[in-house]
């Protein structure tokens, strides 16, 4: 559940987005990654769930290792079982874009991908994920409704539920509150503080206030260079 980067360099075409990054994301805590806007932070997240493709012109050197319950995994290995990795490393994106399906299907899809067929088990897991994301009480009577009918804040919590449904060990959050109003943001922050008891969290945020409120450890990324701030 721990992630270690050592002298990691991330090139995209001729751009060097990350240079000689060394960092440690400790287990069961919330680590924040902050800094001016640019592509560096999201690229760092994409290394962890391997959401980059060599065909796009991405070249990565150095080492990145994640310590899971079952053992260590080299995140840069070309032979990774990507679906399995992504069940363990879930991600919440900046903009909540629910897929054009029902609320229930939006949350249960990752279980379908993981090959779980047992309907009873799927129902339990979905209920648990929605509860952990703080959305269950609001949607339990309308699970079959289209997800697009939810409000912005609810959609982002839906995305969190979808990320949590496979019981991931690591949860990556890419500016999850930047498109939301203050009230929805507070709701999500409360859920994050709750979640870090059971999950390793890595939060990208450009809001210094939010980082101060939530993070146990803070890294700042500027011009491709990383330094620890607290």
């Amino acid at each position: 559940m721990k992630i270690t980067f050592d002298t990691l360099t991330f090139r995209y075409g001729t751009h060097t987005l990350l240079k000689d990054i060394s960092m440690e994301v400790p287990q069961g805590a919330l680590t924040a990654l902050t800094g001016p806007s640019g592509e560096g932070k999201s690229s760092l997240l994409s290394v962890i769930n391997h959401l980059w493709q060599p065909e796009d012109g991405v070249r990565i050197t150095g080492s990145a290792v994640a310590q899971f319950k079952g053992g260590a995994v080299d995140l840069l290995s070309p032979h990774l079982n990507l679906p399995l990795l992504r069940q363990k490393v879930a991600m919440v994106f900046q903009n909540p874009t629910p897929l054009p399906f029902s609320i229930f299907k939006n949350v249960s899809l990752p279980l379908t991908f993981a090959g779980i067929r047992d309907q009873k088990k799927i129902h339990q897991r979905v209920e648990r994920a929605l509860t952990r994301a703080g959305l269950w009480d609001e949607v339990n009577h309308r699970l079959k409704h289209p997800a697009a009918t939810l409000s912005g804040g609810q959609q982002q919590r839906l995305a969190m539920a979808r990320a949590l449904v496979t019981n991931p060990e690591i949860l990556l959050l890419d500016e999850p509150t930047s498109s939301l109003d203050a009230e929805s943001r507070n709701g999500i922050e409360a859920q994050l503080l709750e979640l870090k008891k059971s999950c390793t969290l890595l939060l990208v945020s450009h809001s210094e206030d939010q980082v101060d409120r939530l993070a146990d450890r803070i890294y700042r990324l500027d011009q491709g260079h990383l330094e620890r701030q607290g």
Binding site: R86, P100, F113, R162
Partner: peptide, 25 residues
């Protein structure tokens, strides 16, 4: 592309993504 990234991040293989998400969409 955003939807495709999200679906890969959910742990879908390319074939699963097509038959469970893209085709219904």
């Amino acid at each position: 592309r955003g939807t495709r990234l999200r679906v890969s991040a959910m742990g879908a293989t390319p074939v699963q993504a097509i038959f469970h998400v893209y085709l219904p969409m």
